[in-house]
């Protein structure tokens, strides 16, 4: 009995040390965002760095004065949401065709789509830029959205799910004379909520973190997403610790909310990604 108590104490000690290691940068970020610049430096050499020794909103108002922070958030939310919504439509429809419909060339086409998963985005960056430039889309929302609507991996995920649905409901609806499109919207989609939510979530998180493409495709502030905006702010003099920490803290909130609301689906989503093999 005594042995297990010691084991628990030891475990807690390891856990607490690790938790400090994982949390200290984030705690420092949030706490510092509410301190004056001189206070941040003063506290740096003591444990006060992690304690609220000062309280001011000045850093936050300074961020809003120096950069259009809300606009960055709105731009990011808008373009990522449109990718998610259009992507759900386009990819699930394609996946349904590959899972349930029989037509000439279907299997070849699906194999080709799956093969595309392997292509790393980084290797098509420059030609994609040239294509988007040719379309006259640089510095537009189209440039941020359209290339990312169709997603080979998401088609694959949807198809896997559709294949496992029982066919009977769809077949009886067909007997009643329902069209394929109607079957898809009225029967298949309601049955497939989990996969829709998982794909939506993973797509949102992926594109929320987009950096390289928006950096290249948007030079204009009117379509600059949050990640690029923060990078610019980081290099924009004068560099004030407090201002940057306030911007970073606010920049963390949207994704934090997503995780809080969709925690269950997210964990299931990444777990299913792990089980795929």
């Amino acid at each position: 009995m005594k042995k297990t108590v010691w084991k628990d104490v030891l475990l807690y000690m390891v856990l607490i040390i690790l938790a400090c290691l994982f949390l200290f940068p984030l705690v420092w970020m949030v706490i510092s965002s509410f301190k004056t610049e001189s206070r941040i430096f003063m506290d740096l050499t003591s444990f006060n760095a992690f304690l609220p020794t000062d309280f001011t909103f000045a850093n936050y108002s300074a961020v809003f004065e120096r950069i259009p922070f809300f606009r960055y958030i709105i731009t990011s939310t808008l373009y990522v949401s449109v990718i998610v919504v259009l992507g759900l439509f386009v990819n699930s429809l394609a996946a349904y065709a590959f899972a349930r419909m029989t037509f000439k060339g279907r299997d070849v086409l699906f194999a080709a789509v799956v093969a595309l998963i392997i292509i790393p985005f980084e290797s098509i960056l420059l030609p994609l830029y040239l294509i988007v430039d040719e379309l006259d889309w640089l510095n537009t929302y189209q440039a941020l959205i359209v290339p990312f609507i169709a997603n080979a991996f998401n088609i694959f995920m949807f198809r896997q799910f559709f294949l496992n649905l029982p066919k009977e409901l769809e077949e009886s609806a067909r007997m009643d004379g329902a069209s394929t499109l109607r079957i898809f919207f009225q029967i298949v989609i309601p049955l497939s909520k989990p996969v829709f939510i998982t794909v939506a979530l993973l797509t949102f998180i992926t594109h929320w973190g987009d950096f390289m493409w928006p950096l290249i495709a948007t030079t204009d502030e009117s379509v600059r997403p949050l990640q690029v905006g923060m990078q610019f702010f980081f290099h924009q003099p004068p560099v004030k610790y407090g201002h940057i920490m306030a911007a970073l803290t606010m920049g963390t909130i949207p994704l934090l909310l997503i995780f809080l609301f969709f925690q269950k689906y997210y964990v299931r989503g990444i777990a299913s990604a792990g089980m795929k093999n």
């Binding site: 940068p25 973190g209 950096f211 940057i244 970073l248 963390t252």
Partner: peptide, 10 residues
């Protein structure tokens, strides 16, 4: 939960 850009700046 944070993004790579945020942690890189931090």
């Amino acid at each position: 939960v944070t993004s790579m850009v945020i942690v890189s700046i931090l």
